[in-house]
């Protein structure tokens, strides 16, 4: 569904298409205050995945609402489709 908030209602079609094709993801915090996103495939290898994760986390940090109190990033968990959940130290991502 095109939505101005996710940049999918625009006259700059070329740019929008290019970004989507290049792997643009949109995310939204759900009711429990958790954000879930895909960041790539296992075949990318750890380093490429780390770059994607970093791009996403940077964005999350930039979007911190001024009204949020206390700890902003409480926990981070990485998991593959069928793999176990792996906790990441939120203090290491800054």
């Amino acid at each position: 569904m095109p939505n101005a908030k996710t940049g999918t209602v625009t006259f700059e079609l070329a740019k929008a298409i290019e970004e989507l094709k290049a792997g643009k993801i949109d995310f939204r915090v759900e009711k429990a205050g958790i954000v879930h996103v895909p960041v790539g495939k296992i075949s990318f290898g750890a380093e490429k995945l780390a770059e994607n994760v970093k791009a996403f986390l940077d964005k999350i940090l930039a979007l911190r609402p001024a009204s949020s109190k206390g700890v902003y990033v409480k926990t981070i968990t990485i998991s593959s489709t069928m793999g176990p959940g792996i906790k990441v130290d939120p203090l290491l991502i800054k």
């Binding site: 429990a32 205050g33 954000v35 895909p38 960041v39 495939k41 981070i76 968990t77 998991s79 489709t81």
Partner: peptide
């Protein structure tokens, strides 16, 4: 497999 990240935010 797809790799997913879940972040619990204090919001």
């Amino acid at each position: 497999e797809t790799v997913d990240v879940a972040v619990r935010l204090g919001v």
